[in-house]
Nucleic acid binder design. Structure first.
Lengths: 123, 123
DNA sequence: AAGGGAGGTATCCCCTTGGATACCGTGAAC
DNA sequence: GTTCACGGTATCCAAGGGGATACCTCCCTT
């Protein structure tokens, strides 16, 4: 564990974009996933979230802190973010949501494409 | 089943507002719950959602339709909305999310109040 | 003393979300 | 033939989410 976070970990197979279920703001769900294996540093979190601006990351992390899901541990040479026990307990329903999205992936894609076609047809 | 929807069904005990987990937009989760026991009509759905404007309800329902979660059945004298099988399958992770929120209700409230106090103190 | 990395802030700006209010079209029902 | 409920639209508006860019402070290294 504590393997480096990769830049492509949310690229292809992650069901997040098509799933109707969301945790907090745009980034919160992914951040929680990133912290699953242990504490991470600010700059470390920016890697898998690609082009996230520091402002957005700060904002999301503060919101997660306020909800008691993430802790901020400031040390001499770095800042480490980690899941609180409450945040870790959230992994269970979050995983259930992701599993649902993966399980119904085809239907979600079909519905999305059908809606898109209809839009084009109407226009 | 098919008992009338009450105006207060989302008032007190519903964990939605404090839960970090959301389904679609502001109303989607509650709409899905409302359809759990069978099809409902537009005006019927407005009751439990209190002050929802027709515009907002229309918008949310259209979005749920596009995602394939809700079906719209137009009949001579009424329009009925119902869960699709896909929509119904979403109840499982949705219930998991609600159960989580209820289970950690106290912690959620504590975190929320602590954040509020801190805001007041800072200001 | 200067450079550099970590962890942010400060501004600006656009787009979306969602509420308020008002209006509309259709088909019973009176 | 007008009124009424149903199922919406149309328009306007305020607040918030989120990206782009630039800047800053602290501390360590060289």
């Amino acid at each position: 564990m504590r393997t480096p976070l990769t830049a492509d970990m949310f690229d292809e197979l992650c069901p997040t974009p098509l799933s109707p279920i969301r945790v907090g703001d745009k980034w919160a769900g992914m951040i929680i996933r990133c912290l699953e294996d242990g504490p991470r540093r600010f700059s470390e979190l920016r890697v898998p979230l690609r082009d996230i601006t520091p402002k957005s990351l700060t904002h999301s992390l503060r919101a997660l802190e306020q909800r008691g899901l993430v802790s901020r541990n400031e040390q001499p040479r770095s800042v480490e973010y980690a899941l609180t026990p409450l945040g870790r307990s959230l992994l269970e329903p979050l995983n259930a949501a992701c599993a649902w999205a993966e399980e119904h992936w085809d239907e979600l894609v079909d519905a999305h494409e059908a809606a898109y076609q209809e839009t084009r047809h109407t226009a």
